[in-house]
Simulated scan of single mutants.
Amino acid sequence: METLAEAAAENGTDARSATYRAHPLVRIEPAASDLWLISRDDRLNGHKVPASAAGLLVAAFAPGTIYSLSEPIMAAIGSVRRAELIAEWLVAHEYLVRDDDAEAIKTRRWLESWAENGWRAASRYHARTYGYPFEFYEADGNSAEDVRRMVAYNAQQPDVDRARPRLHDQEKVYALPDPAPELFPATASAATNLAVAAQPLDYDRLASLLSLLTRPIRQARMPFAESANLLRKTSPSGGSRHPTEFSVVTHAVDGIDDGVYQVATVDGALDRMDHLDASSRDLADLSGIADDNRPYALIFFNSYFARNRYRYREPRTFRTVHMDVGHLMGTAEYLSRANGWAVRHAQHLDGKKVADALGTDHRVEATIAATLVHAADQPAESRD
C-alpha cells in the first residue's frame, strides 16, 4: 500500500510539509463500542469518533505532517483518501493544530508550568471552566432570573445545608464563645501595621480567634419555604454559601489537650476527633509547616462542595470555593497578627492524604489549604 506522500506525488500535488500535533487540551475517552469521545478542555462539546480517528489523534501527541500522522491508520481502514479526510476533519475542528500555532504554544507552556507545581489536574479543570457562560445577573445579584432559579432549586430540594453535622460520642468538647467585637484583642491599625506585642497562645485567645473566623455573626432569613437562614460571617462568601469547614490541630496550647478537632461553627464548639486513625502528629506532618518547638494551632480549610453547588450549579463552583478559602486565610492571618502571633500558610497540600487522615472523602470535602499560628517566642512545654 502506498503512503499518503507517494499518493500525493503521483497525483502531482505537493505533500504538505507543515507539522501538526494534537492540541494540548485534547481529551480522549472511551464512549461506546467502537467509538471514542474526543474533546478539548476549553470547549463545551466534543465528538464521538471511530477508533481510526482516535488512533490518529493519539499518534499526533508527537508532531508530524498530515501524511505521516495518517499513515499508521491506513492499514486499518484500507483507504488513503479516507485517512486523509479523517486528518483534515481533525484539523478543521482544531483537534489537530499547527505545531507553530501561537495559541497552542502558549497553552502548552502554562500547562507545563502548572504541572511542574503539581497542579496537572487543576490545570485541566481551569481550562474546562475558564470563560464558562453564565446568566448575566444584575449588579446587586437580585435579578428576576436569579430569584426564579433559586425558587426552582428550592422546589426540587429545600436549601437547609449550613454546617457539617456534629460528631457523635466525642470524648472531649471545648466551647467557643459567641462572636463579639471585644474578642478582637487590638486596634485594626495596630494589627494591620504589625504593632502588637506577642501574646501567649492559650485556649482562650485561640477560641476567640476561631469564633471570629468560623462562626456566624448574624443570620438572614430566606424568602423560600423550608429554607434555612443564610449565615453571615466575618469573611465574605458568594451567595452566603460558606462551603468551608474547619479542622484544627493543637500542640502544647495551654487550656486544651493536644489533638485533632472539628469546629462546630453554628453550635460553637470544638469536638475532638478521637475516632481518627491518624494522629495530630500525622496531620501536622502532612501540612509541612508545623514546628513542635513551640505551641501552635494548625487550621485546615476544608471545602464542602455540595453546599456551594446548590446555588452555583455551573462548573465554576470549584473555582469559587478557592476564593472563599483565600478570604478565610487572610482573616485568620489578620486575627493572628492582632495577637502578635506568627503565621504560616500551606497551599500545596496532598488533598487526598489529608482527607484520608481526617476521615473524609476528598471528592466530597477536600482540604484546600492550612494556616499555622504560633507565638514566635513561646517555647513548647513538655506534656509527658
Rank of each mutant, 00 (worst) to 15 (best):
M1F: 02
E2R: 15
E10S: 08
A22E: 08
V26Y: 01
R27E: 12
R27P: 00
E29Q: 15
S33T: 12
I38C: 03
R43D: 03
A51D: 13
S68Q: 14
S68A: 15
A76I: 08
A83L: 04
L85W: 05
A87L: 09
L96Q: 05
K106Y: 00
E112G: 06
G131F: 01
E135M: 08
N142T: 03
D146R: 12
V147S: 10
V151G: 07
R162D: 03
R162H: 07
R166D: 14
H168D: 11
D169Y: 06
Y174T: 01
Y174F: 09
A175H: 10
F184H: 06
P185V: 11
S189R: 09
A191R: 04
A198W: 01
T214C: 15
R218Q: 15
R218F: 14
E226Y: 14
L230V: 00
L231T: 12
G238F: 05
H242W: 13
F246H: 14
V248R: 06
T250I: 07
I256R: 00
G259S: 08
A264H: 03
T265D: 04
D277G: 15
A278M: 10
A284W: 01
A284F: 01
L286V: 06
N293Y: 02
F300V: 03
R309Q: 11
R309T: 07
E314T: 13
G326H: 02
G330W: 02
Y334D: 05
L335T: 02
L335W: 04
R337Q: 09
A342H: 10
A342N: 10
A342D: 07
Q347D: 13
H348Q: 10
K352A: 12
A355T: 02
D356K: 14
G359C: 05
H362T: 13
H362R: 07
T367G: 07
I368G: 01
A369G: 13
H374M: 09
R383T: 10
R383F: 03
